[in-house]
Design a protein around this nucleic acid. Structure first.
Lengths: 106, 106
DNA sequence: GCAAAATGATATGTTTGCAGATCAACTCCA
DNA sequence: TGGAGTTGATCTGCAAACATATCATTTTGC
């Protein structure tokens, strides 16, 4: 099962790749998202879990959108995103391991 | 521009619709997500902004996944989600208003 | 090689998400 | 009618996400 830290790491990695592909600095993203640079750094490195509003602000600063989609639709959405070329960042896809349950990790 | 409270309200409404369509109580979702019922209630009513990990836990308890997708792909994804029938909850689609910028609201 | 920029990291203080407990209001059904 | 279940709401206390400031380290460009 994926730990909490691993999940935050995935989100952070996603943000980092998006930021670098946009040619932006941590400070620029932090400013656009309305948070401090140390805070954004913690989020990007997976050391801290941003609030929902902060998560959305960061995503939008990076040209992304946070979506809540039915789990059964995830593969179709990823298929829609994947072939789109090689330079756009892949969507945050949490578990390739499609086991049954989703008990909270703590 | 969409305020912070409005955005949290959209997320909460999305969770509420998903919960009711699953025939679950607030307490059941809270248990699966690993948080207390008062906390889940605040999140569902938009009174509180959950952390990223809590957001993901709640989504999975409701059969949903949190995804970060390029903004330009949002319409295509919504089109993929929409015609799917009438009983599955629509994805969280933040702005029908497609204005340019995404400055943080506070 | 050197200066500037970007990043990593730490410290103090404030805000707020969180647990746990408790109570009231409302619905529903036997 | 009346009890059980669901939801709304408040309180105390703790943990962690925030700001701001300040350092060192690494990277970048001239």
């Amino acid at each position: 099962m994926k730990s909490e830290e691993e999940t935050l790491g995935l989100v952070g990695d996603h943000f980092r790749r998006a930021r670098l592909s946009m040619g932006m600095t941590q400070g620029q993203v932090a400013d656009l998202a309305g948070i401090s640079r140390p805070r954004y750094r913690d989020i990007e490195t997976g050391a801290a879990a941003a609030r929902t509003t902060t998560l959305i602000n960061i995503a939008r600063a990076l040209g992304l959108e946070m979506m809540l989609v039915p789990q059964v639709m995830v593969p179709a959405i990823e298929a829609l995103l994947r072939p789109e070329s090689e330079d756009d960042q892949p969507a945050f896809s949490p578990q390739p391991e499609s086991d049954d349950d989703s008990r909270p990790y703590r």
